[in-house]
Amino acid sequence: MAAAQAGDSAAYRRLLDELGPWLRRYYTRRLPPSIVDDAVQETLIAVHEKRHTYDTSRPFAPWLAAIARYKWIDRLRALKRLPTEALSEDISVPDHESAVVSATVLEQLLAGLKPAQAEVIRLVKIQGFSVEEAAARTGQSASLVKVNIHRGLARLTLTVQSQAYADG
């Protein structure tokens, strides 16, 4: 900054390049993501306009942090002034019934399988782990995991088909 105060463009560019990521981290922790960029840019402009107030005999970080904090508070005040609208009590939301029913039915079906089969189906087919990860978690070999998944799914298919036949 001392060099920038003397008019050294290259040093100033380096400084601004380093300040950008620091300010982004600072505001990411304190502001909604949609206004982080604006806050960073506004602070860089403030640093530019007030660069003559930096006293080179003192550390740079507290000076920068004070400006960043000042702009942060400014942003918070601006956010407070933004008009907000209360949500109605009877606002419609998507129905979760089918998801809840599916999860319950699936648990009932899995309960009919051997525990080793149900466990690897949960890990690989529902939670998205790889076969190797499921093997590491359950202590089964990778090939046993594959066999258990295959047999478990086949048994589930049979169960569903027989229930559909019975209902039909």
Binding site: A6, G7, Y12, R13, G20, V40, I45, H48, H52, T53
Partner: peptide
């Protein structure tokens, strides 16, 4: 962001420091 930094650097002039 780069445009802003470029314009700030282009606008750079030596300044007289403010002192207490």
């Amino acid at each position: 962001m780069d445009d802003l930094l470029d314009s700030l650097v282009a606008d750079l002039e030596p300044v007289r420091r403010r002192t207490s």
